[in-house]
Design a protein around this nucleic acid. Sequence first.
DNA 1: CTTAGTGTACTAGTATATTAGTACATGATG
DNA 2: CATCATGTACTAATATACTAGTACACTAAG
Lengths: 136, 136
Amino acid sequence: MGSRQRVPFRFRLDLHSGVPVYRQIIDQVRGGIASGSLSVGDQLPTVRQLAVDLSINPNTVARAYRELELVEVLETHQGTGTFISAQKIRGGGEERSRQLAQIVTDSVARAGAIGFTVEDLVEQLRGLVLEPSRRR
Amino acid sequence: MGSRQRVPFRFRLDLHSGVPVYRQIIDQVRGGIASGSLSVGDQLPTVRQLAVDLSINPNTVARAYRELELVEVLETHQGTGTFISAQKIRGGGEERSRQLAQIVTDSVARAGAIGFTVEDLVEQLRGLVLEPSRRR
DNA sequence: CTTAGTGTACTAGTATATTAGTACATGATG
DNA sequence: CATCATGTACTAATATACTAGTACACTAAG
């Protein structure tokens, strides 16, 4: 019947990746949003529940959630749970700008390392706009 | 003779950025290549010289250089110095393009996760060309 | 008011990252 | 060979990151 199957978003850890657990959680939430698996208003597993599922300490989950809340990707309500927040697609946000700068700096460095210029990056980006078919 | 005034590439540290010193060096070398300030064959300051200039330990410089050498961005010659290596600019254009696409895809995903558009990325990139290095 | 569920604060142990001190190895140069 | 300039190896001190233990605080619901 009409049950909406509120799919419990699936977290998976790779303990051999060397990537901190809390960061893996962050990445998976962000990835879920980017891919559409998570939408505004969706509730995430509770701190305790996820901690049990992944066999880690609740504080580790809390840290990931808190960090995402600081960037306003999540909203937490005491006693209720943690939810995907309505992104502030617009508006200032010092931290957001900082993050964008970080992203760009990283990509420039990576591209420069294999001999590409900033212009090459821009060109590639433009190409993406015209040819959005290739989603990953 | 015919001295070409090999301009000594200028390194600058931001000790309050929280970004590790060795990483700042790496980023600046890569950025220098991307921006054209550094070209294939250029010699970098010697480990000792740069250590003195920046008031840091030679090993910190060496670490940065070594890491860049592993990725084949630099070439080191004992007793001679450290140089910008001939990039794999030519050859395997396929693989290089793939890497560029990957870099762009990553940055778009990261930016998209916090509500930025491709245009925002382009704008930020343009700004970088005019005003280098400011991290964190 | 009580209870059960939620996130949070504070503390601390452990690992890892970062930088520095010091001595050594290698290659160029005369 | 002697010397000097270069990068390198090894060790260690320190800071920071990461995770966990434990107890607390807020909210909704009976």
